[in-house]
Simulated assay, not measured.
Amino acid sequence: MKRPERLNAILDLLAESTQVEVEDIVNKLEVSPATARRDLDHLAAQRLLTRTRGGATSETVAYDLPKRYSKDQQAAKKRAIAHAASGLIPRGAVIGLCGGTTSTAIASVLATRRDLMEPSNKPTLTVVTNAINIASQLAVRPNIKIMVTGGILSPRSYELVGPYATSILQQVALDFAFVGVNGLDPEIGPTVNDEGEAAVNSLLARRAGQAYIVADSSKIGVRSFATMSGYTFGNLITDDGITVEQRQEFEARGTNVILAPPVEE
Rank of each mutant, 00 (worst) to 15 (best):
residue 1 M to R: 07
residue 3 R to I: 14
residue 10 I to A: 01
residue 13 L to P: 00
residue 14 L to Q: 00
residue 14 L to W: 00
residue 17 S to G: 01
residue 22 V to S: 00
residue 24 D to P: 03
residue 24 D to L: 02
residue 24 D to K: 14
residue 25 I to N: 00
residue 26 V to N: 03
residue 26 V to A: 01
residue 32 S to W: 08
residue 34 A to D: 12
residue 35 T to R: 02
residue 37 R to V: 02
residue 39 D to R: 03
residue 41 D to N: 12
residue 42 H to Y: 15
residue 43 L to T: 00
residue 44 A to H: 02
residue 45 A to I: 08
residue 45 A to D: 04
residue 46 Q to K: 15
residue 48 L to T: 00
residue 49 L to H: 00
residue 51 R to W: 01
residue 52 T to A: 02
residue 53 R to Q: 09
residue 54 G to W: 01
residue 55 G to P: 00
residue 56 A to Y: 03
residue 57 T to S: 01
residue 61 V to N: 14
residue 62 A to N: 11
residue 62 A to C: 03
residue 63 Y to N: 10
residue 64 D to T: 10
residue 66 P to W: 04
residue 68 R to H: 15
residue 68 R to D: 14
residue 69 Y to C: 09
residue 70 S to N: 08
residue 71 K to T: 08
residue 73 Q to F: 07
residue 74 Q to T: 11
residue 80 A to F: 04
residue 81 I to G: 12
residue 84 A to L: 15
residue 85 A to I: 08
residue 86 S to D: 11
residue 90 P to I: 04
residue 99 G to M: 05
residue 100 G to T: 08
residue 101 T to V: 13
residue 103 S to Q: 10
residue 106 I to L: 14
residue 107 A to Q: 07
residue 109 V to I: 04
residue 120 S to I: 04
residue 121 N to L: 13
residue 121 N to A: 15
residue 124 T to G: 04
residue 126 T to Y: 10
residue 127 V to C: 13
residue 127 V to H: 05
residue 127 V to T: 05
residue 128 V to E: 08
residue 130 N to C: 14
residue 132 I to Y: 11
residue 132 I to G: 04
residue 135 A to T: 10
residue 136 S to T: 13
residue 138 L to W: 07
residue 140 V to C: 08
residue 143 N to F: 00
residue 144 I to P: 05
residue 146 I to N: 03
residue 148 V to H: 13
residue 150 G to W: 03
residue 151 G to L: 07
residue 159 E to M: 12
residue 160 L to K: 01
residue 162 G to Q: 09
residue 164 Y to T: 06
residue 165 A to D: 01
residue 170 Q to N: 12
residue 172 V to R: 02
residue 175 D to A: 12
residue 179 V to I: 15
residue 182 N to Y: 07
residue 184 L to E: 01
residue 185 D to S: 06
residue 185 D to M: 03
residue 187 E to R: 10
residue 189 G to Y: 09
residue 190 P to E: 07
residue 193 N to G: 15
residue 193 N to E: 11
residue 194 D to F: 01
residue 195 E to A: 15
residue 200 V to H: 10
residue 207 R to L: 05
residue 207 R to N: 09
residue 207 R to I: 09
residue 209 G to S: 13
residue 210 Q to I: 07
residue 210 Q to R: 14
residue 212 Y to R: 06
residue 213 I to V: 15
residue 217 S to P: 11
residue 219 K to C: 13
residue 219 K to S: 12
residue 223 R to Y: 06
residue 225 F to H: 13
residue 226 A to P: 03
residue 227 T to H: 09
residue 231 Y to H: 12
residue 231 Y to W: 15
residue 233 F to S: 00
residue 235 N to W: 03
residue 236 L to T: 06
residue 239 D to Y: 02
residue 240 D to N: 14
residue 240 D to T: 13
residue 242 I to P: 04
residue 245 E to D: 12
residue 246 Q to K: 07
residue 246 Q to W: 02
residue 246 Q to N: 11
residue 247 R to H: 06
residue 248 Q to M: 10
residue 250 F to G: 02
residue 251 E to Y: 13
residue 254 G to S: 12
residue 254 G to M: 15
residue 256 N to V: 11
residue 258 I to R: 15
residue 261 P to E: 12
residue 263 V to F: 14
residue 264 E to M: 12
residue 265 E to I: 10
